[in-house]
């Protein structure tokens, strides 16, 4: 039995990183908050680099709850986009050059978002990961978590629902 040889590792990595880069860099608010994504295979980790403008309580000091919420929402949304588009990125059905030129497919929209604050966010970097617990044709459910120094002591957790775009054509 024969099958096509897999693409060289550099080609695969370049294709994935280019797709992720186009999804992230096109959104001004993600850039404004200073969020970037680290990719290991199909797993994404969001990184919120600390900045003084993220402070909500100067007396403690602590990161603004709204920043934590936005960070989790971006983590959840990007993980969903990534999970949803992954098969098309791998197959090459999504043209990387078109993505890089800003021609993104229609993306899921947030229906609702619930955040639980577990610990105050310290003035340092935060990390986030999300899991798509259901990806349906019309709706998706995503859970997200953010932590700082200790993965087992999350600062916040969130649940979000998204409306999936109708398939084009």
């Amino acid at each position: 039995m024969s099958r096509a040889a897999p693409d060289p590792v550099q080609v695969v990595k370049q294709r994935r990183d280019a797709a992720l880069g186009s999804l992230v860099s096109g959104v001004p608010y993600i850039q404004y908050l200073g969020i970037r994504f680290d990719r290991r295979g199909d797993e994404l980790t969001a990184i919120l680099a600390y900045d003084d403008k993220l402070i909500g309580n100067p007396a403690l000091p602590a990161i603004h709850g709204g920043v934590t919420a936005a960070f989790l929402e971006i983590t959840a949304m990007m993980t969903l986009n990534w999970t949803w588009l992954w098969p098309d990125i791998e197959s090459g059905a999504l043209d990387p050059d078109a993505l890089a030129a800003g021609n993104l497919p229609r993306l899921p929209k947030t229906i609702d978002f619930t955040v639980d604050y577990l610990r105050s966010g310290l003035p340092r970097d935060a990390y986030g990961r999300a899991r798509v617990t259901r990806l349906g044709r019309r709706y998706a459910s995503v859970q997200a978590e953010a932590w700082q120094d200790n993965r087992d002591r999350p600062i916040a957790q969130a649940t979000a629902h998204f409306l999936m775009p109708r398939k084009e054509g």
């Binding site: 001004p28 404004y32 919420a69 800003g102």
Partner: peptide, 23 residues
């Protein structure tokens, strides 16, 4: 414009609305 979530339409990101609602 710095708070845009959808570059095609110029709509503000939900996260900025969350920050406003929380405050």
């Amino acid at each position: 414009a710095r708070f845009i979530g959808d570059p095609d339409t110029g709509v503000i990101h939900g996260g900025a609305v969350s920050a406003l609602m929380d405050t």
